[in-house]
Write a protein that binds this DNA or RNA. Sequence first.
DNA 1: CTGTTAGCGCCTTCAT
DNA 2: ATGAAGGCGCTAACAG
Lengths: 346, 346
Amino acid sequence: MDKVGIKEIAAKANVSIATVSYVLNGTRNVRPQTKERVLKVIEELKYKPNNIAKSLKSKKTNTIGVIAEDITVFNVPEIIDGINEYADRYDLHIVLTNLRLHKRVGHNYSNIGAFRKYAENAVSDLLAKQVDGIIYIGIHPRDVTGLIDPGDTPIVYTYCYTKNELSIQYNDEQASYDAIEYLYKKGHHRIAVITGLMDSIPSRLRFNGYFKAVTDFELPFEPQLIKVGNWGLESGLKLTKELLELADPPTALLVMNDVMAAGSLRAARSMGVRVPEDLSLVGFDNREFSDYLNPRITTMNLPLHEMGYSSMRSLLRIIGGDEEHAAEQVPLCVLIERESVAPLVD
Amino acid sequence: MDKVGIKEIAAKANVSIATVSYVLNGTRNVRPQTKERVLKVIEELKYKPNNIAKSLKSKKTNTIGVIAEDITVFNVPEIIDGINEYADRYDLHIVLTNLRLHKRVGHNYSNIGAFRKYAENAVSDLLAKQVDGIIYIGIHPRDVTGLIDPGDTPIVYTYCYTKNELSIQYNDEQASYDAIEYLYKKGHHRIAVITGLMDSIPSRLRFNGYFKAVTDFELPFEPQLIKVGNWGLESGLKLTKELLELADPPTALLVMNDVMAAGSLRAARSMGVRVPEDLSLVGFDNREFSDYLNPRITTMNLPLHEMGYSSMRSLLRIIGGDEEHAAEQVPLCVLIERESVAPLVD
DNA sequence: CTGTTAGCGCCTTCAT
DNA sequence: ATGAAGGCGCTAACAG
């Protein structure tokens, strides 16, 4: 089966290749008769267009390059899904590059130098493929300024920060503020918090929100109720135990990710502390499994899908020359109420 | 900044465009002197190659189209990661299409007609982009024969079955056989099983494995120890309760996915049955959260990464004309031992 | 309404 | 060791 191009169909339909092109793209009026004839031949010869050739001419590929730091990290697939929804709607295609950071550099991804080569290669490949724009998806909200140079190609970052280009992020500070407010309205005053590593932006932002809420609601500020974790389950377990062993333990606990929250649950159980009866617990991330734990935990949802979708919208605006309106309002987190919080009665 | 192509660099370096092409591709000997001169100009002008043009000529894009039924379903990202590892190694690119099945047709994905249009569009787009081959990643191991027609383009399916083309799958039957054998060797004889929906291929295969093991190890076959679930947590919970309410409850339980196993844990706890002391539990899938549950559950790992990697290897073999060796040995599942199984002592 | 034609950026055969 | 030149499949002026 030889390749059939518009030339072949032109010959068989007794028209010029131009006409074929025009009926294919509806880019000029063609006599219905001719048009039909051409269409019939296209059908018969099972013509398949070649977008490569088309792109070469038109200088537009209608494809967006997506660089994901690691597609196996929980936040990434949903962000890509949001990108896809936009892409589907506007008939764009996605070229995906997976940096595979986790498997390649482990948890050392804060050290930008360690994977700059990978990132630079990804960008070169994408540029060579003439993508119309690039979206960079981080696996941890940190500053990634200077990692790559996309040249003239528009780029939008998400789930990470950058000083020079647009980055789409959710509002961490607001989110933890909301969580504390929620707990406060349930009657809790002595609210403990387990943060992530404090060299991370979201940890600081979330702590800011916590502190702001504590101030606004005039809650007691007790440093021993503040624990710094490392995002891992074991640290959630250990720190929750410490909290529970306090002479005057907190009645509620905000844990800055669901994995540590799973550790909190384990700690509580091992000490005979019931959740939520004796301790209210709020997690962060709304990981799928937070609904599988026992009790099902109340947690802060991340607007991942929306971040992907917004990134695309912003990128397309930039590509369209509308830089002004590219910056979207930041996607918001909303609390998912489940079973791990009870009102404080006493 | 105008586009600089090999023409521009040829001019500035006082050579022909042919020479530039040759130094770029190392496809012919060039005098070191000339070569260096050209390279210098390339550097100066920040030349960026255009793979679109290259592909048009060479008829090879070095890119593989990946169609994922839904990237947000747990098995997909890891499979893609495997694909990426291979792609990185052999300098291939990936264009990703996400059918978004879950969000678009819900759990109705067994009804192939419901999303044929999406799938066909995906294939057309990929073919238009001149991909060298296609990998189709299912979200549930079922037969998708006839869903799409990739024409002459090589295709490999994974995490689903097809009658006409190659599909890479793990060995379900072996996996559940192994799980039962493991339990048997721990001293268990009365082993219950909660299957998934029985209209699904893996459920049947896994049941076969169970039954084969029961036969091989001469275990009692008691129909009341067999429960048919629907993959959801609630069904695991309900059926485990039924099992535990039996006059003579099983001492061990194989649950065919981790989500239902989370339900089993909940059921056990609500009835005061301890896992693993009173009931040993083995899950399936090795979902990340299976390590977060309490107790951490022993579960059967799926070789997802390997499936992705193998799919690529097979596809590339087919592309290379080596159809014979395309079919890989099937990837194996291995049991991850954690805390939910105890030896039976009595 | 339709045809002719000049490229898009690069590879590659054929000369030199 | 290097150049000249003809496409790859398609689009879009420019002419009828």
